[in-house]
């Protein structure tokens, strides 16, 4: 019985040399940076505001996509790490009197440490249980914060006391969509690059091998438990970064961001974007937010079209936008090769 589940990875052509690959990366990154810097002057303020939020949740989607790519597992609970980062930084910044920079560092470390503990428990169970476990944890944590009266405001959430500047950046400009968009764009580009490098590293390749065939990896002599724990921790850290930035941006945190629907939406963004490449979930998040912004006429009934769209994507094109881009680029390259004879 196959217990490990995974989506098909589009196999990339290994023919191109690493130098031409590096050159292509450079071109894409420069292009992405240019687009990021120019977008605030070219696009409407609304598009920029929506997009910067999308990129924050894009980190959550990246975390969900990363764990799916590197372990074949589907998380229905990554909003926990997104939300806990917001809460821990918010609580430390508001009530501890620590400088904000230190609060951010300690908050992130706490969340990552908790994620490591949780990973060490749930990575012991077979993969099939993973989705259910993450969902259960998410609901439990949500209820905890939802009911917790006092300083964190229960279901209402609470406003975070932020100083005038954070890492030397004035808080007011940090909370303006235009500035935040550029910051989000650059952090996203750097993160996508780092994740792509991770994939090519020894550990990255090992986790892919474990995903494909855990028995074989174990038979060859690799430990298959710790690499999976590490993958979980990295994916939780990605979500936590998104949650941190979102909290600094809004200056507010409430249980809503760590609800299980947030996790579910992040999973949808990751799947629609495709998890084979690190940029997929980001593209999925941008698409999700920009489309949602246009379909406000649906009112409360957004679940029906969203669920239908998800089913259609998964049944017809399960590799998402990444798979589509791969398909198109292979077509173009094939046509170019034919042109050159």
């Amino acid at each position: 019985m196959v217990l490990e589940s995974s989506l098909p990875l589009p196999t990339r052509q290994a023919s191109d040399s690493s130098r031409s690959r590096a050159a292509r990366w450079l071109v894409w990154s420069v292009l992405a940076v240019v687009v990021t810097v120019l977008a605030p002057t070219l696009c409407s303020a609304r598009v920029i505001a929506v997009s910067s939020q999308a990129l924050m949740f894009g980190f959550l989607a990246m975390g969900t996509g990363f764990i799916h790519k590197h372990s074949g597992l589907l998380s229905f609970g990554h909003a926990v790490w997104f939300g806990l980062a917001g809460y821990s930084v918010g609580i430390l910044a508001t009530f501890s009197g620590l400088p904000i920079e230190l609060a951010i560092a300690i908050g992130l470390v706490l969340v990552v440490a908790l994620a490591a503990l949780v990973a060490m428990v749930i990575m012991r169970s077979p993969g099939i249980a993973f989705s259910m476990l993450t969902l259960a944890i998410n609901v439990a944590v949500f209820e905890l914060f939802n009911r917790m009266r006092g300083a964190t405001g229960g279901a209402d959430g609470f406003s975070i006391a932020l100083p005038e500047t954070i890492f030397g950046v004035p808080t007011t400009s940090l909370q303006s969509p235009q500035t935040m968009f550029v910051i989000m764009g650059i952090t996203t580009i750097v993160t996508v690059g780092a994740l792509t490098l991770f994939e090519r590293s020894h550990l990255g390749q090992l986790t892919l091998a474990i995903r494909e065939n855990p028995e074989r990896a174990r038979f060859i002599g690799y430990d298959i438990y710790w690499p999976r724990v590490i993958v979980f921790v990295i994916s939780a850290a990605l979500a936590a970064i998104g949650g941190l930035l979102f909290t600094l941006y809004t200056g507010f945190v409430s249980p809503e961001v760590l609800g299980f629907m947030t996790s579910g939406q992040a999973m949808i963004m990751a799947m629609v974007g495709g998890t084979a490449a690190a940029w997929g979930p980001v593209a999925g998040a941008l698409m999700f937010f920009l489309v949602r912004d246009r379909v406000t006429f649906l009112g409360d009934h957004w679940m029906l079209p969203l669920g239908s769209a998800l089913i259609v994507v998964m049944a017809v094109w399960p590799t998402g936008l990444v798979g589509a881009a791969d398909f198109v680029s292979r077509r173009i390259r094939g046509a170019a090769r034919r042109l050159h004879g």
Binding site: S5, L74, L306, S308, L310
Partner: peptide, 12 residues
């Protein structure tokens, strides 16, 4: 892959 079917039931 089971993940595909799982996501579809989530859509449902």
């Amino acid at each position: 892959p089971h993940a595909v079917v799982l996501i579809i039931t989530f859509g449902l």
